[in-house]
Design a protein around this nucleic acid. Structure first.
Length: 117
DNA sequence: GGTGTGACCAGCT
DNA sequence: AAGCTGGCCACAC
């Protein structure tokens, strides 16, 4: 057995979900964590994003915000304001580093996505 | 291999 | 009501 072992690290799982976020939509760290099974592991999701720079794939980390809809990780994009700019570029309205219509653009993987692992 | 950390969340004071 | 602390779990040194 053993085979290749899909050692899919927690990070990889997070990347997949983040990659599945539709254009013009956002989600929260807790939502992704809950989708992965550990609602309280939301911190790991954020940390995974920190390592997203190591991923060769483009991770739309700007579509991931906290449950308040605030752009908490904007400082990690190299330049502050870049995250908000990317979001507005997708039609998402942000104000004061916070998504105005967060409720409207919120994309819950638990609801939209099905357990197809 | 123990310790620390981290872009959170929720509960307690 | 608002601020803070704890918890949680995976990764880096």
């Amino acid at each position: 057995m053993a085979s290749e072992t899909e050692h899919q690290s927690f990070f990889e799982s997070v990347y997949q979900v983040v990659r599945l976020i539709p254009y013009g939509r956002v989600t929260s760290y807790g939502a992704i964590a809950a989708f992965l099974g550990s609602k309280r592991s939301s911190r790991m999701v954020g940390w995974a994003m920190n390592a997203s720079h190591s991923s060769i794939e483009n991770i739309p980390a700007h579509r991931v915000v906290n449950r308040n809809g605030m752009l908490t990780g904007k400082f990690h994009f190299g330049e502050p304001g870049l995250m908000a700019q990317l979001l507005e570029n997708e039609g998402i309205i942000t104000e004061n580093d916070r998504i105005v219509n967060f409720r409207e653009v919120f994309w819950d993987p638990n609801k939209e996505l099905e357990l197809n692992l």
